[in-house]
Design a protein around this nucleic acid. Structure first.
Length: 759
DNA sequence: TTAGGGTTAG
């Protein structure tokens, strides 16, 4: 019998295990349950395949306590927590007395309900077992009940090193640095695990310097200690340091494990240098390392980030049954990153199990690819699921989606959910809130949120500055840059784009010039803003000079600003110059052709209007399709030119026709109808009566009560004749209409518009 | 039998 045990302890792989199994069955030397237990012990050690282990277990006709106990241990190690609990209940009902170690695994698997077993263990007298006691202590720590853990810890007469270690990791888990350090200093002895816990603890609170100090002072280090320090760097956005540490550990003769490879690969993808990644991949190939699914997933993500979508998809497909949630999520975000929303959605719909990250990836994917309404719809679906809770990331995406379509009421509804579900918002959540408010025209609220923030980053400042810019508060934007410098936050190139835009919209020419001078290394975008500022202010010749002398090649944005300024100030010649450059730089952008055509139209050059339209047709360009949104009872209604898919379409078009008749009667003729006198009759029909803004406004008129202001939101610029039409509608209907155009809000009432500077 | 480390979304 002892020979058998000795033999069993030597088994080191599954093949030997199967041979041994055959030997036992063939010779049937001992009782059935005895050798089943023996096999299960080996299965636990070798992490044998679940199907095989199950077959061993079921081969026993009447399993005894020992068989049950080892099977329970196996389930627990495999993470099959439900099986553990049901097996325990089964033993209980059969009146089988579990071996003591069963309680360790039972407590591990019980999760939040592990507390129940504390009393149970006390009653059975197992509390003196130091392993079981530690399992309880550790359970409290893992459940975040550090107070209960501390109470138990203090009661212990004899504390093992493991208990101290559990307690220290509990302190870090609850963010109690002081207590962790105190325990560390009080400990009678420390081991690698103690030191490593300190490294990860400091990393978790973001104190990389202290983490490194403990790492450097460690008397000895395991591969885990190196991994802890390396991942600390990787997670705190210091991927270069992480790679440095990787090379250092190779030099010191440490053999990297799966974790090391995963962190190293993810650091390569953060740095974004494919050649660096290649050298790591060569190393893996040379060493003939078999990568586990974690590392494969990291690799998949890296290829996706480098734009190698096909390689990424191959890895995903080859992972097969080893594919975990993360692999699905990585593949989804790989697709959303490049705008392939339908492919992403297909994966999302087919996922076996969706977690918060899956939902967040898909919601953010829609929000970032101009599908704000879809993003919000998916969020609604998400909160109707009972098994999933939105977090800060979800909220940040959804708030930004609300901002993009100017849906303020939806934004309020999202905030209600934040309160209801007690979701804690951090910097990025507040940044999205600032974005949402300023995009919806509530700059005062945006400012208020900004001021209540405890810590702000450069994005917080940039978002509010752009908010000020969009709403015409130039001076506040400039002031904010000064505050920024006072708080020690370095303005970046986005900051200056915001400030220059603010100056431009508020007509602050000299202030803008000073800002421009203060930029250390202006980019081509800053030059484009400056051309816009000079151009809008009427200094078109200076703008032209600036382009001539700028140190880099101008891009479309630079000439676009010049073209727009030429339109505002009716400088046909300059407009032609800008347009000719734009037709070279971005021949496929229909907006430039439309702008030029409008410039010709406003000076009555109909032949040229026709010529530009002909040019567009030859190059196969469609004019821009405008879209408008109306927010009504938490639903966003979208309108596209000529669209008849809305359920109230019939009424909307009826109202539209009525309004146009009324307008004609009071002498209103859309400006564009002049420009289109030589255009085909049906095209005129298409371009005139059915602009998305008009549809949206008619819908708003249909649903809103008399006397309430109508709110229409839209992302594209309102065209000239629509602007006039809305003025007329506001006069005829005696209603206030608020329309958002690109970034600004236009308030129409009694035939007047309070925001004229574009026209 | 216990303790430490890994991949994803903004």
């Amino acid at each position: 019998m002892y020979e058998l045990v000795a033999l069993a302890s030597k088994i080191s792989n599954i093949r030997q295990l199967r041979l041994f199994h055959g030997h036992l069955v063939h010779n049937s030397l001992h009782s059935h349950n005895y050798w089943v237990s023996l096999l299960l012990v080996i299965c636990n050690r070798l992490h044998a395949h679940p199907a095989y282990v199950d077959s061993i277990f079921t081969s026993s006709p009447s399993p005894d306590a020992s068989v049950y106990s080892y099977m329970l241990k196996y389930y627990s190690r495999m993470g099959a927590h439900n099986q553990v609990v049901s097996l325990f209940k089964c033993m209980h009902s059969l009146d089988l007395r579990p071996q003591p170690f069963v309680y360790i695994y039972l407590i591990k698997s019980a999760g939040k309900s592990g507390n129940l077993f504390h009393a149970y263990v006390l009653k059975l007298g197992h509390i003196d077992d130091r392993f079981i006691r530690n399992a309880i202590l550790d359970m409290y720590v893992k459940n975040g009940q550090v107070d209960l853990a501390r109470k138990l810890f203090e009661q212990m007469a004899e504390k093992t090193l493991v208990d101290w270690n559990s307690m220290i990791s509990g302190c870090w888990k609850s963010g109690n640095e002081t207590e962790a350090v105190m325990l560390f200093n009080m400990m009678p002895a420390r081991n690698i695990i103690t030191w490593t816990s300190m490294v990860t603890g400091y990393a978790k609170v973001g104190d990389l310097e202290s983490a490194r100090r403990y790492f450097d002072e460690m008397p000895e280090r395991s591969v885990v200690s190196w991994n802890a320090m390396q991942s600390a760097y990787a997670q705190k956005e210091c991927p270069k340091e992480a790679l440095k540490l990787f090379h250092q550990m190779l030099k010191e003769g440490i053999t990297p494990d799966d974790t090391t490879w995963a962190v190293t690969i993810s650091s390569c993808s953060s740095i974004g240098d494919p050649t660096l990644a290649d050298s790591i991949l060569r190393m893996i190939n040379q060493k003939h390392i078999v990568l586990n699914s974690f590392v494969q997933t990291a690799l998949l993500d890296m290829h996706a980030k480098f734009g190698n979508l096909e390689i990424a998809r191959n890895i995903f497909d080859e992972l097969g049954s080893q594919r975990n949630d993360v692999a699905w999520n990585v593949m989804i975000s790989a697709y959303t990153r490049v705008g392939k929303l339908s492919l992403a959605r297909e994966l999302f719909d087919n996922m076996p199990k969706r977690d918060v990250v899956s939902w967040n990836s898909m919601i953010a994917g829609y929000a970032q690819n101009g599908e704000a309404a879809m993003s919000i719809e998916l969020f609604k679906e998400m909160i109707s699921c009972t098994d999933i809770q939105p977090d800060e990331v979800t909220i940040a995406s959804v708030l930004s989606a609300c901002g993009h379509i100017g849906a303020l009421k939806l934004g309020y509804w999202v905030l209600d959910i934040v309160r209801e579900k007690n979701i804690k918002l951090g910097i990025s959540g507040f940044n999205s809130l600032i974005f949402m408010y300023s995009k919806c025209g509530s700059v005062a609220d945006a400012h208020r949120i900004f001021q209540t923030m405890e810590t702000r980053d450069v994005v917080s400042f940039n978002t509010l500055i752009s908010g000020f810019a969009a709403n015409g508060h130039g001076k506040e934007a400039i002031k904010l840059v000064l505050t920024m410098e006072e708080e020690g936050i370095e303005p970046d190139h986005v900051t200056y784009i915001g400030v220059l835009t603010a100056c431009s919209h508020a007509g602050l020419l000299n202030e803008g010039k000073n800002v421009f001078k203060s930029i250390k290394a202006p980019t081509v975008d800053h030059y484009a803003c400056m051309v816009d500022l000079l151009g809008r202010a009427g200094e078109l010749d200076e703008a032209k000079m600036l382009i001539q002398y700028m140190p880099m090649k101008p891009h479309g944005g630079v000439y676009g600003s010049l073209l727009n300024a030429s339109r505002i100030h009716k400088r046909v010649g300059l407009g032609e110059l800008a347009a000719s450059k734009l037709f070279e730089l971005e021949p496929q952008n229909p907006g430039n052709y439309v702008l030029l055509s409008n410039i010709y139209a406003s000076s009555g050059r109909w032949e040229d209007v026709k010529r530009v339209r002909e040019m567009m047709r030859k190059r196969g360009l469609q004019k821009l399709v405008g879209m408008s949104w109306v927010e009504y009872k938490g639903q966003v209604h979208k309108f596209i030119v000529g669209d008849r898919s809305h359920e109230q379409s019939k009424d909307i078009y009826k109202l539209l026709a009525e309004l146009e008749r009324k307008m004609k009667r009071v002498g209103f003729v859309a400006d564009k109808s002049c420009a289109l006198r030589d255009v085909e009759e049906e095209e005129k029909e298409e371009m005139l009566g059915t602009h998305s803004e008009k549809l949206a406004i008619c819908f708003a008129l249909l649903i809103s009560e008399v006397g309430t202001p109508i709110r229409v939101v839209k992302n594209l610029r309102i065209c000239l004749d629509c602007h006039t039409a809305i003025k007329m509608i506001s006069k005829l209907e005696g209603r206030e209409i608020v329309v958002r155009d690109n970034n600004r809000f236009h308030c129409f009432s009694d035939g007047m518009c309070s925001c004229h500077d574009y026209w």
